[in-house]
């Protein structure tokens, strides 16, 4: 493999096995020969898909923040709560920093990720050279991925609903459905993301 020029090589990030990278067709994918990790997954017009889905997710997130999320009522008392109030549940006393963390995990980091992806891919989708700092911005989007926990938040909601179930009656607000849609859009977007292809496109000046 020494004869291959170094810029055509790809090393599996999971096991370090060397492969020769080549241009793949629309429905081809490349996986590591040793450990099976997917290395290159291009799709037709995937940049545009990711941009469109990121915009959709941003709009859904705005709806999810401002519309009522859940409403509870029991014995004549009732209380409605937005996603913002959920994050602020820890805001009094010693637990205040946790409020900020929760807000970042369910709203802040997902929004930063969507914004970073749009910033990186917008010029690339229009066949223009990448905008300044695109490398740093896309790397940030990649590093944030495990910390954006919108989908875990929805599972948490489901568990909380069952816990309250016997105690009081709960009605779901529009923000709840916006959040559910957001998770589906986010999963679709991740399926269209091919890191190697994007890095390749950023690298071509």
């Amino acid at each position: 493999m020494h004869e291959t020029p170094i810029d055509q090589l790809i090393a599996c990030p999971k096991c370090d096995a060397l492969h020769q990278a080549r241009h793949l067709g629309e429905n081809e994918r490349a996986a590591c020969a040793r450990c099976g990790t997917l290395l290159i997954t291009p799709r037709a017009r995937s940049f545009l898909h990711v941009i469109a889905l990121s915009f959709t997710a941003m709009i859904l997130m705005i709806a999810a923040i401002f519309f009522p999320f859940l409403k509870i009522s029991a014995q004549g008392f009732s209380h409605a709560s937005s996603v913002f109030e959920v994050a602020m549940a820890f805001s009094d006393g010693l637990l205040a920093p946790l409020s900020l963390v929760v807000l970042m995990l369910i709203v802040g980091l997902p929004v930063v990720r969507f914004g970073a992806l749009i910033y990186t891919l917008w010029p690339l989708a229009n066949a223009r050279p990448a905008w300044p700092h695109a490398r740093r911005v896309f790397r940030l989007a990649e590093e944030l991925e495990p910390w954006a926990m919108a989908e875990i938040f929805i599972i948490g909601t489901a568990v909380a609903l069952v816990k309250i179930g016997g105690l009081a009656s709960v009605s779901l607000g529009p923000a709840f459905w916006a959040f559910c849609a957001l998770i589906i859009v986010n999963a679709l977007k991740n399926a269209f993301l091919s890191q190697w292809t994007i890095w390749d496109a950023i690298g071509q000046k």
Partner: peptide, 9 residues
Amino acid sequence: AILSALVQL
């Protein structure tokens, strides 16, 4: 977080 924000009756 959800329980503490919501269950305030």
